[in-house]
Design a protein around this nucleic acid. Sequence first.
DNA 1: ACCTGAACACCGTTCAAGT
DNA 2: ACCTGAACACCGTTCAAGT
Lengths: 229, 229
Amino acid sequence: MSPTPDAKRPAGRPRSALLSRDRILQAAFALSDEQGGEFTLAAVARSLGVRPQALHYYFPSREALVAAMRGQLTLRIGDHGFIDRPWFEAVHGWAFAYRETLGRHSGLIAALATLPVAGEPESIADYERIAASFARDGYPEHLILPAIVALESFIIGSALDALAPADNLRPHGGAAQAPVLAAAEQSASRAAAAAESSVIDLTFTFGLRALVAGIREAGAVTTSGSEAH
Amino acid sequence: MSPTPDAKRPAGRPRSALLSRDRILQAAFALSDEQGGEFTLAAVARSLGVRPQALHYYFPSREALVAAMRGQLTLRIGDHGFIDRPWFEAVHGWAFAYRETLGRHSGLIAALATLPVAGEPESIADYERIAASFARDGYPEHLILPAIVALESFIIGSALDALAPADNLRPHGGAAQAPVLAAAEQSASRAAAAAESSVIDLTFTFGLRALVAGIREAGAVTTSGSEAH
DNA sequence: ACCTGAACACCGTTCAAGT
DNA sequence: ACCTGAACACCGTTCAAGT
């Protein structure tokens, strides 16, 4: 990973800059990938072959780096057709990409969780795009933000859940300790196997469909109902 | 907070134990309350008037303490009538208590997020109770776990979202930068003010209702539809 | 049994110094 | 401008020692 692993470079300005905001962000994302994902400034610095303090030249604090990573997140999730498709169609691809991106950088999830979701310019642009999709489709204006926030809450919560081991809810005591739960778990496992999928993925799909259906319904009810005056 | 703030006690076994698992848990919850909520072993030890290493006598690691706290969480959330009411009624009180409990111990949310949601006995008992409620109401067995997990994912995600500042999605550049988002935000704020509530609470209620409605629908569809054979 | 003291590896951050 | 060295306060954890 590091360009010059052990070579102790001397003090003083290097002939050409070793770092940049982009290079640091790239290394940070690489580190938050899959394995364990201990996300520390020191680890990022190690992978870049520099001392930890060097990072402070580009990011004032660890928090600032994490914030920048979240800005990048929306770019990595990508556009998913909110502009030319109904929101309730585009939302599925977006949600899956969102969760997959979070899952791929599991170390980041915890770091993001500790930092209140702030308004980076990239995030704002993303929300604007999605909000415009809802508005264009005639969704009640005062419910657009609640709908988007509810979807995002579900996605982030699901990403957190996906970090847990798969046999998470399998009671240790077996069926004797929690018979209904054990039966439900087995039944879900069989359904997942039959669908050649996993319980985790089926659960996410199920929840997302349910939430989207509920959100559509709520918008329709309000539009033709008590909202008129 | 600490019983003897500065008094440096000598080494050696105290005449009566200063600590216990319960006392440590209580202090840990008190610390994760509201303000900033820096949750560290050192801080817990400080509030108890002992050295950090003393805690290791009762909990092998910081992770073990956090796991014990999560076990306590379900107790603090409490029962909400899943036994004698339909799940789709009881779920509202449960969800609000869940989110409020998480919100009251905001420091804990981050700690929980870093630790995969494991199967403590208390949590298992809680899931069993809720799963039994679904089963009794005739919900399709293979969808019970997906339904519960989806609800919990939404609740935890919402609790995380509630940590963010309220004007989170208000674009800094104003309406010029993100006109639709700005309008949606104002519209939601007005609706919240009219309901004498907050955008955060309205959003949570909205999302919860939508998700519950979608989950009910999905269960009904499956029962009377393609599942039969 | 139940705590302190000392010690370790680690972390984020500040500040001076070097080129 | 762009990095290292030294230094600081902090963290979790281990282990010996004290009663």
